[in-house]
Design a protein around this nucleic acid. Sequence first.
RNA 1: GCGCCCAUGGCUCAAUUGGAUAGAGCAACAGAUUUCUAAUCUGUGGGUUGCAGGUUCGAGUCCUGCUGGGCGCGCCA
Length: 569
Amino acid sequence: MNLYKYVSDSINEKLGFKANLETPKNRDFGDFSTNAAMVSAKTEGKNPRELAAQIAPKLQELDFVENVSIAGPGFINIKIKNDFILQNAVAPKQMIATKPLTIDMDYGAYNVAKSLHIGHLRTSIVGDTFNRITKFLGHKTFSWNHIGDWGKPMGLIIAWIERLHPELPYFQDDFDPKTPVDYEIDEKELNNYYPSASAFAKENSEFQARAQEIKAKFQAGHPGYFALYEKFLAISLRTMNNTVQRLNILPFDYDLGERNAAKYLEPVEQILRAKNMIYESDGAQVINVKRDTDTAPMPPYMWRDSRGADTYDSTDLAAVYCRKQVDNPDRIIYFTDLRQSLHFEQLFRAADMSGIYPYDKFEHIGYGTINGKDGKPFKTRDGNAAGLDDIIDIANEAVKARVAESGKKLDDETIKIIALAAVKFNDLLHDVKSDYIFEPSAITSFEGKTGPYILYTAVRLNSVLKRANGDFSKPHEYALTTEERSLLIEIMDFEKTLLSAYENRATDMIANYAYDLCQLTNNFYHNCPILRDDIPTDIKAGRLYIAKLAFDTLSTAIDLMGLKIPSEM
RNA sequence: GCGCCCAUGGCUCAAUUGGAUAGAGCAACAGAUUUCUAAUCUGUGGGUUGCAGGUUCGAGUCCUGCUGGGCGCGCCA
């Protein structure tokens, strides 16, 4: 049961108007409080405490209310009956949305032939968790990994391979796709091609021009370039799949990016031309997305650059058109770096103006950067910008060291699970749009508000449940201790938390909830022994029931965060 | 120059979207273990919420101005 909703609805019905229900910061005041008296005192010109005194007796009549009190300037505090809490607390399960939506979520956005950078970590983790929460609430979602598989980098990579292996037949204009070619690309080498080529192109204009020429011919359908492209694309897709597994995120519904979107450029261009939206500016084909109300300069949306090539502006718009055709979503949500805000503002306007997709159904969730202690983007020990793998490796080493220090023996798989939890939980814990500081030392200590703490709580609960090996049925009567009571109320708060996390697009809420739940669970665990010999049977049964509820709730939260519970730690 | 975001104990972050005495973790100090897993639990100290005004019963939260930081501003994605 969603206790908050139940109490709120009951109170509104009883009072005949909508009262604002809150859970006091200080739980000593009560389980819930309402400022109804203060709000209506204002409109009615009456004394709030007098009004509260009139309202309170009505609330006292509700069968789940233990007592009602008036405090401060006119707060009405409500305490819920223990038995009501015990009888109605349930473990969360998949919900049915009252108004189910279809939502396209764009996150991941991995690149072909380019190892994942640190930013991919946040888009993957936050996007995945938000996706899971949305599904859990009963909405239909489609996740799109909008792969960078079409633009300028492809030209550079092909040009680079041409430079390394000019003898390969792919570079001949009359290449026959059926020709068998004895050439394999090494995955690790492939990841270096783009950075190397990109750097080389900057100082070598001849190579730069060659890459551009290749890109144009490639996009026009050059068979040899395309055959080569398909070769490294396959490797990249495999790498991406490994990343998905390594991060334990849900498989994407679509691994379709720029190349796929490019197929929709023509119909989109027809729409734009029909509306006279495209005009020439400095040799490029652009769309004006300014509004009269703009106070900031609004650059035009770049449909084609001055060389006539697609841009990421055009493929992004085409991708929207594609999604409209394929999923017909009620909303499209992008999870990308905050710095792309202007681009998305332009995209949303262009889509809206062209009638392809309405402005108010788009959302851009921009995330901040992961920084080191110095406040600048996190670097590895050798001073290079850290990649996604670096982060996970660093966490792995830290966990391994900590485990060795403790004298415990955990297998590599368990260590990986713990390290990933450390990284992911830490990421989810922070407000999406703000930068956060990644401190390996904070993870090394494994104390406090961390992923390992969450897992540890689940593991020790699980250990009791396994050991009990009994049934966990609800007791008819059981006198709750304060620890048990607080824990059950927190469990009943789960649904409300999920709804807020969804509505606010705030994945940190689930992480913070999980932490609070763990604190209360550990408190319960510590103060309410279950399987000890001196514990009477009825108390044992009651506590086992509560422990099971706590475990089910916690494991659901853990699952929504894309973490795994190890068998021991 | 224009625009967006941010500023909360020594450090890293919260604060139910305007509510009561601003909460957690780390670090510091003091305790708890014949263990259902101590990667745990309990306690103590630590704050003029960057500064100055304003709005109202009530402001960390809203409005204005300042100070200090981050980011963005047509052919890279």
